[in-house]
Design a protein around this nucleic acid. Structure first.
Lengths: 138, 138
DNA sequence: CCGGATCCCCAGCGATACTG
DNA sequence: CAGTATCGCTGGGGATCCGG
């Protein structure tokens, strides 16, 4: 596990790889699509059905960007009716590993975060407006 | 490395831990602040100086949210002039580990992603408008 | 069946000015 | 020093309709 000083890039640089990666996977759907494709190739309509809440536009956009970045392949089968399959590339599969680490952390510790949130909120209600307000809670 | 079917939560649920975590760290500054605090406690002005480009508003907001979620502690020293130190909690430090894995992937593979992007863009220019356009490139 | 194109809204963020 | 308050923009994202 390298410390920051051992990394070649300055993480405060907007162009450093980490920032770029976070810009990519930080959106609402990218990680979810990668996760779904980890099980194997999927058709557009399969993805749309499995990823609850995603709009057609965002699914198409996410897939095109993933293809653009070499993380997903798009294969059109010249049949009738047309069939299109999306699959992870090796690069995409390799990204799934650190993503899985994040998921493990989330399942293990996210409940603690939620508890902390509730505790802080309780304090605020208790102090009834005299304390600093909680973040983004209108 | 657990597969998705072994996880307790449905990743397609908006309330699953992974989605919640991504909503938290997916913003512009959270990961950067956590990284900076990994070196040790920092004062507000130190953070502002080290994290290039962050506004006072976003630094304060990010820190308050991190405190709210139990990832960072805020300690006020009753001195004059006032001094406030922020530090990672154990929970915050534990999150730094999967984050570091993500950074390692980024430094190792992000260049390949950039290459893929350039290659696709070159194809588009080559086909001069006949192919599908690249994502989000006006 | 697989999307592209369009309209529109609002949350996130930056800039600036002000306070204890 | 360590924030808060307010304004304004911008682009991410949802809803909907249309085309191959």
């Amino acid at each position: 596990m390298p410390t920051m000083s051992e990394l070649a890039w300055d993480p405060y640089d907007r162009d450093c790889p980490t920032r770029q990666l976070l810009d990519r996977i930080g959106d609402r759907w990218t990680v979810l699509v990668i996760n779904t494709l980890d099980d194997g190739p999927r058709r557009y309509s399969e993805l749309a059905r499995r990823i609850d809440g995603i709009s057609q536009k965002m699914l198409a956009q996410t897939l095109r960007t993933l293809e653009f970045d070499g993380l997903v392949t798009r294969t059109v089968y010249p049949e009738v009716p047309p069939r299109v399959e999306y699959a992870l590339t090796d690069l995409g599969r390799s990204l799934q590993e650190p993503l899985a680490a994040l998921e493990e952390w989330a399942t293990a510790h996210m409940a603690r975060v939620l508890d902390a949130r509730r505790a802080h909120r309780a304090r605020i209600v208790d102090a009834s407006g005299s304390g600093r307000p909680g973040p983004t809670q209108p």
